[in-house]
Design a protein around this nucleic acid. Structure first.
Length: 412
RNA sequence: CGGGGUGUCGUAUACCGGUAGUACGCAUGCUUUGGGAGCAUGUAGACUGGGUUCAAUUCCCAGCACCCCGACCA
């Protein structure tokens, strides 16, 4: 996979739009990962799509490990379905509504408990069908009163939402705990330090719920962290603003601004009772399915990574989500052909973006710093003479001169 | 939805009740090429609608758009 920078649809910019304030919004826009169409509505440009696909790959792998099967549910849904779960007029933020040509009211779904419960009703008939889990990565619409911080809170976004169905509360609890651990692994693979925080379940409902908080200056939540145990609590729900010691272990606590990046819920029978999603037990009785739901916002996760992984020159992608494995910078036009040969060889093993534009070296370096691809390879007349390439890690700026073959070994 | 703010070339900005300027970008040419190069030429702009005025991009009103604070969330 080989792409030249001249081909890339978007352009790196020196300036961010004046209205962009959040650092992730500024950098992702300047570097050409995203483009704002309207308040809280963004296009993902080719670079943004690539990062998103990396994140999704990490998530899909974890979903597979949880035994969850992928589905794709409709975003456009009849309002009548939401009336049955009693959420049509109580959702917060409210649903986007529209009317079709037959004057029927439809909604753009902000979450998918209703649809998945309907599907469960049709497909889960016996205790022998349980437990089962399905997930999707799909567009959500939220009629927010105010979009903020670029991708941090938007009105249309991709969410990974997982739903699980169980016979017993114990089984739901066990699966919930597995998902919680899986979520922590997902965030850790994105090089994020995450804490699962006991949370309010809001308009989704249910009894037990955790949100996944990542400390970042732009965060909207205030989370109390214990420095000695893994206790963490959202100050909003705990009303413990005055607390100076951990309620669990007595350790020192700190309050940090956090971004909420995922939220998981034990819904129990809330939706299955409302929508009569029942299954037959061993003793022949009809029982409501016990349900859990688990969400991660993909775009917000990408923005959170930028919020926590950047420097004054630009984005610093963790290797796992870098849009390309290697950013090859060809300093001198005289070695373009040699660079091309190396690039073709390398691109058999990894995804490479090659910048061989006939512009100043400084501009190429500056844009490479802005784009934030995790590994940079520089080829110049000097390195050609020595038969080496210069390899730089974006995160550390550490440079090393290595032989091309040696370098490529790590990818094979 | 309450409060506040801002609308000037593609982007960032300046000035102004009477001819709208700069930088970047973009285009062309020449010179450049290890940290957002230089010169030259060119390109392109006052959110919309009303009002005040001899004259409005500038002042006033309304609408629209965007941003920020609050409430809510992935």
């Amino acid at each position: 996979m080989l792409t030249t920078q001249a081909q890339i649809f978007s352009k790196a910019r020196k300036e961010a739009p004046a209205e962009a304030e959040a650092i992730s919004h500024r950098l992702l826009t300047r570097a050409g990962y995203i483009d704002q169409l309207a308040s809280g509505i963004f296009s993902l440009l080719p670079l943004g799509v690539r990062v998103t696909q990396k994140i999704e790959a990490i998530i899909r792998q974890e979903m597979a490990a949880l035994g969850a099967q992928e589905v794709l549910l409709p975003a456009l849904q009849p309002a009548a379905l939401w009336a049955r779960s009693k959420r049509l007029d109580t959702m917060e933020p409210p649903l986007f509504r529209l009317t079709d040509r037959h004057d029927r009211t439809l909604v753009l779904a902000s979450t998918h408990e209703e649809v998945i419960t309907e599907l469960a009703r049709k497909n889960i008939e016996s205790y022998k069908d349980l437990p089962v889990a399905v997930y999707q990565i799909q567009t959500k619409f939220r009629n927010e009163t105010r979009a903020t911080g670029g991708l941090l809170r938007v009105r249309e976004f991709q969410m990974k939402d997982l739903y699980s169905f169980h016979r017993t509360a114990e089984d739901l609890q066990a699966y919930y705990d597995k998902v919680k651990q899986s979520y922590i692994r997902i965030f850790e693979q994105c090089d994020l330090t995450v804490r699962a925080v006991e949370a309010d379940s809001g308009s989704i409902g249910g009894s037990v719920s955790h949100e996944f908080s990542i400390a970042a200056p732009t965060g909207e939540d205030k989370v109390l962290f214990c420095s000695q145990c893994d206790y963490a609590a959202n100050l909003e729900t705990q009303a413990r603003a005055a607390a100076t010691a951990c309620p669990r272990c007595g350790g020192n606590v700190t309050v940090k601004a956090c971004i909420e990046n995922g939220h998981i819920f034990q819904l129990g029978a809330k939706y299955s009772e409302a929508l009569e999603a029942l299954y037959t037990e061993e003793d022949g009785t009809r029982q409501p399915l016990l349900m859990g739901c688990y969400g991660i916002g993909i775009g917000r996760l990408m923005a959170t990574i930028v919020e926590t992984h950047h420097d004054d020159r630009g984005i610093v992608w963790p290797t796992a989500v870098s849009p390309y494995d290697i950013h090859l910078i060809v300093v001198h036009q005289s070695i373009r052909e040699a660079a091309q040969r190396f690039a073709e060889q390398a691109s058999q093993y990894c995804a490479m973006l090659i910048d061989d534009r006939d512009i100043s070296a400084g501009q190429k370096f500056a844009e490479a710093d802005l784009l934030g691809i995790s590994t940079r390879v520089v080829m110049s007349e000097k390195t050609e003479e020595q038969g080496v390439i210069e390899v730089t890690q974006r995160a550390t700026q550490e440079k090393s001169l290595v032989k091309p073959d040696e370098f490529l070994k790590q990818f094979t």
